[in-house]
């Protein structure tokens, strides 16, 4: 009987010990993740910033990228993004409007559109590359061109852009629509005069987020927009994106490491700016940051 207090103290010690171990494990897991992130960013910044200056951003690519700058690469990347957005934005906004037209229950139509977009979101980027190569470059005869690359990327960012647009439109309070409808406005007028203006910051956030995805993409572009590092003269010219340039310098050009780091630095700075812009726009829209970036399920 007198072992009672001793045993309970032993249990208490064991509990404290377990609490301690679990807390340490959780802190170690969380800290190590952050340390690796900082390690990567610091590495890119330290090795990359030394090479980046204004000349680097505008000069031509020389000697396969070992010297010179990335002027044409930035231009090509911009054009690819432009093509991508010109196609993806109207398509996504239209689809999002169609998916949100019924507020109460999901129709058969919406459910299946959404399911096929879920599958599209899971398609590996190299498969987009294969598809873009077979469809845009060869079947449509666009060849290795900025147009092929941009269109391939448009297919790729479609699921995320539709999902964010859909959330943006759904976040508009239903009362706004009811009030507008009570005033006798037509649905089209309500959409363009009430719903879309209110949803605009969140819609813009989705667009910016998609630009980030498109900028980061490499595998889908190698066999669609190609490798050519010259300044493109038209959308039918091949153009090399920033990410493809990094890959090429790191893997295929001996001695290209420092310029690869400089390009990576430019790309990461662009993405950080995009990340900040998304957060800002979502705050403007009054939406919490996590709702759109927390994965695509």
């Amino acid at each position: 009987m007198d072992s009672g207090p001793a045993t309970s103290r032993a249990i208490e010690v064991r509990h404290h010990w377990r609490e301690f171990c679990v807390a340490v494990a959780v802190w170690v897991a969380a800290t190590s993740v952050i340390c690796v992130l900082i390690w990567i960013l610091a590495d890119i910044a330290i090795r990359g910033l030394a090479e980046v200056n204004f000349g680097f951003l505008i000069e031509d690519v020389q000697d396969a990228g070992r010297v010179g700058g990335i002027g044409p690469i930035i231009l090509s990347t911009g054009l690819i993004l432009l093509v991508c957005l010109v196609v993806a934005v109207p398509l996504s906004f239209g689809t999002a409007i169609a998916l949100t037209e019924r507020l109460d229950k999901e129709s058969w139509f919406a459910r299946n559109v959404r399911r096929s977009l879920d599958v599209l979101a899971g398609v590996p980027s190299i498969v987009f590359g294969l598809f873009g190569n077979a469809f845009f470059a060869i079947a449509l005869g666009l060849g290795y061109s900025i147009l092929s690359g941009g269109l391939t990327l448009a297919c790729m960012v479609l699921p995320i852009l539709i999902r964010t647009s859909e959330q943006a439109i759904r976040a508009v309070p239903a009362e706004y629509r009811y009030a507008a409808a009570a005033l006798g406005m037509k649905r089209t007028t309500i959409l363009f005069r009430v719903v879309l203006p209110v949803a605009m910051p969140a819609l813009a956030a989705g667009v910016v987020l998609s630009i980030g995805r498109a900028l980061a993409e490499t595998a889908a572009l190698i066999f669609t927009s190609g490798y050519v590092a010259r300044t493109p003269e038209s959308l039918l010219d091949s153009g090399r994106s920033l990410s493809v340039h990094i890959y090429d310098l790191a893997m295929n050009v001996p001695g290209g490491g420092s310029k690869a780091y400089a390009t990576a630095c430019v790309l990461v700075v662009l993405l950080l700016a995009i990340n900040a812009a998304t957060a800002l726009l979502l705050r403007l829209a009054g939406l919490h940051n996590r709702s759109t970036t927390g994965g695509s399920l």
Binding site: I44, A216, T218, S243, A250, Y261, N289
Partner: peptide
């Protein structure tokens, strides 16, 4: 979220 946005080529590099 930042880690999620780092491009795969940069991870590769």
């Amino acid at each position: 979220e930042l880690l999620a946005g780092i491009p795969s080529v940069v991870f590769g590099l």
